[in-house]
Simulated scan of single mutants.
Amino acid sequence: MIKKINCIIIDDEPSSQNVLEQFVKKIDFLELKAVCNHAQEAQKVIEVEKVDLLFLDINMPIISGLDFYKSLINPPLVIFTTAYAEFAVEGFDVNATDYLLKPFSFERFQKAVIKAKDILKQDEDKLILKADKRLHIIKFEDILFVQSLGDYVKVHTTNNTLTTYSKLSTMIEKLPSNNFIQVHKSYAINIQKVNFIEGNHLLISEHKIPIGQKHKQNLTKHLNNY
Score class of each variant (00 low, 15 high):
residue 2 I to M: 13
residue 5 I to P: 00
residue 5 I to N: 00
residue 10 I to F: 01
residue 12 D to A: 08
residue 12 D to V: 10
residue 13 E to Y: 11
residue 14 P to L: 07
residue 14 P to W: 04
residue 15 S to K: 05
residue 15 S to R: 04
residue 16 S to I: 07
residue 17 Q to H: 07
residue 17 Q to D: 08
residue 17 Q to M: 11
residue 19 V to K: 02
residue 22 Q to Y: 02
residue 24 V to P: 02
residue 27 I to V: 15
residue 28 D to H: 12
residue 28 D to E: 13
residue 28 D to A: 13
residue 29 F to K: 03
residue 30 L to S: 01
residue 30 L to Y: 02
residue 31 E to R: 11
residue 32 L to G: 02
residue 36 C to V: 10
residue 41 E to W: 06
residue 42 A to D: 03
residue 45 V to D: 07
residue 49 E to L: 08
residue 49 E to S: 12
residue 51 V to G: 00
residue 52 D to W: 09
residue 54 L to C: 07
residue 54 L to T: 05
residue 59 N to R: 11
residue 59 N to C: 10
residue 59 N to V: 13
residue 65 G to I: 06
residue 65 G to Y: 04
residue 67 D to S: 12
residue 70 K to W: 08
residue 76 P to H: 03
residue 81 T to A: 13
residue 82 T to R: 05
residue 87 F to W: 08
residue 89 V to T: 11
residue 89 V to H: 05
residue 90 E to I: 07
residue 93 D to L: 10
residue 97 T to I: 15
residue 98 D to T: 08
residue 98 D to N: 13
residue 102 K to S: 06
residue 104 F to G: 04
residue 107 E to A: 15
residue 108 R to N: 08
residue 108 R to T: 13
residue 110 Q to A: 15
residue 114 I to G: 00
residue 117 K to Q: 14
residue 117 K to G: 07
residue 118 D to E: 15
residue 120 L to N: 08
residue 123 D to N: 15
residue 123 D to I: 10
residue 123 D to L: 15
residue 124 E to K: 14
residue 126 K to Q: 14
residue 133 K to H: 14
residue 135 L to N: 10
residue 136 H to D: 07
residue 139 K to L: 12
residue 141 E to D: 14
residue 144 L to N: 09
residue 144 L to I: 08
residue 146 V to G: 00
residue 146 V to W: 00
residue 147 Q to S: 14
residue 148 S to T: 01
residue 151 D to A: 10
residue 152 Y to Q: 05
residue 155 V to K: 01
residue 155 V to L: 11
residue 156 H to N: 06
residue 156 H to M: 09
residue 158 T to Y: 03
residue 159 N to Q: 14
residue 160 N to L: 11
residue 161 T to Q: 13
residue 163 T to G: 03
residue 165 Y to D: 09
residue 165 Y to K: 12
residue 165 Y to T: 13
residue 172 I to S: 00
residue 172 I to D: 00
residue 173 E to K: 13
residue 174 K to G: 00
residue 180 F to C: 04
residue 180 F to N: 02
residue 182 Q to N: 03
residue 183 V to A: 02
residue 184 H to F: 04
residue 186 S to F: 00
residue 187 Y to K: 01
residue 190 N to F: 05
residue 192 Q to G: 14
residue 193 K to M: 11
residue 194 V to P: 03
residue 195 N to P: 05
residue 198 E to Y: 12
residue 199 G to L: 09
residue 199 G to Q: 03
residue 201 H to F: 15
residue 204 I to C: 03
residue 204 I to A: 01
residue 205 S to Y: 12
residue 207 H to L: 10
residue 210 P to E: 00
residue 214 K to I: 11
residue 216 K to P: 06
residue 216 K to H: 12
residue 219 L to T: 06
residue 223 L to S: 09
residue 224 N to Y: 10
